[in-house]
């Protein structure tokens, strides 16, 4: 600022706009609508239940990076809930759909490297460990599925959890915040692998308690689930890069806990 204003500087508080955890409500509504809209588009058939999964699964993490963990989780929950009604063909167990969406956005928003929320990943990781324990444990101990089948079939889940625990979590967040759009795209891909994988883990754990798919399905999932997951990552990367580039370009208000 080359000119010194004559007036006294005032303390600016973002108190007037209707916000949720620092994210304008208008943003929540728009992103919830996008999640709902993408819930209409099936990506492929999931073997376990015979249902297809919606394209919206690829942007749950993006919602978290744009709005932050809490507002993002709320937006995704609203969008996914509406999606259940307007696109039941992409939903297996409604509760799993909603909680999966919540986890996808929350985990993404918690990938911050600094600030008061930098340690949120820790309790979240513990929770996810517990979820994975219930999911895999039920398959091995109660349903008698061999461990190797569970490990292979849940590759996208444990790999996401592992990457979330390692410094790759911070790396993805810093890339998403980078000025270079190629880095942003890389961060989105890596981050979506993690956050969408954790979203899938949460949803799959619930669905498994309902469906209890057999060993053959676990084994069939081993090559197919990563392919599906790649599709989620591509969706998140393509949409996310455009959205983040656009948001930066038009200079709209950045939510308080946004990662981009």
């Amino acid at each position: 600022m080359s000119i010194k204003p004559a007036g006294e500087e005032r303390e600016v508080k973002l108190l007037g706009g209707a916000t949720v955890d620092g994210a304008p409500i208008a943003y929540l509504i728009v992103l919830a609508a996008v999640v709902t809209g993408l819930a209409l588009i099936p990506l492929s058939v999931v073997l376990g239940s015979g249902k297809s999964f919606p394209m919206s699964q690829g942007i749950y993490p993006l919602v978290g990076w744009i709005l932050g963990p809490i507002a993002g989780a709320i937006a995704s929950a609203i969008g996914a809930s509406l999606g259940i009604f307007i696109a039941p063909h992409t939903t297996t167990v409604p509760l799993a759909t909603v909680l999966g969406a919540v986890m996808g956005s929350f985990a993404a928003g918690a990938m911050v490297a600094a600030g008061p929320r930098r340690n949120w990943w820790l309790p979240l990781s513990l929770l996810l460990f517990v979820i994975y324990g219930f999911y895999g444990g039920r398959a091995v101990l109660q349903n008698g599925v061999p461990v190797y089948a569970v490990v292979l079939g849940s590759f996208i889940n444990w790999s996401a959890l592992l990457l979330f625990l390692l410094p790759t979590r911070r790396l993805a967040a810093s890339w998403i915040g980078h000025q270079d759009l190629r880095r942003v795209a890389s961060g989105l891909f890596l981050g979506t692998w993690m956050a969408a994988g954790l979203s899938h883990l949460t949803a799959a754990a619930i669905v498994y308690f309902v469906v209890n798919w057999p060993e053959a399905v676990w084994l069939a999932m081993a090559p197919l689930a990563p392919l599906e997951h790649l599709a989620r990552c591509v969706v998140g990367t393509v949409i996310g890069t455009g959205v983040i580039a656009g948001l930066r370009a038009i200079g709209l208000v950045k939510p308080a806990w946004a990662v981009y």
Binding site: M1, E8, E9, R10, G16, G17
Partner: peptide, 11 residues
């Protein structure tokens, strides 16, 4: 400035 943030001077 309440929605956009930024620096505000005067009244």
């Amino acid at each position: 400035p309440q929605f956009y943030g930024g620096r505000f001077f005067g009244r």
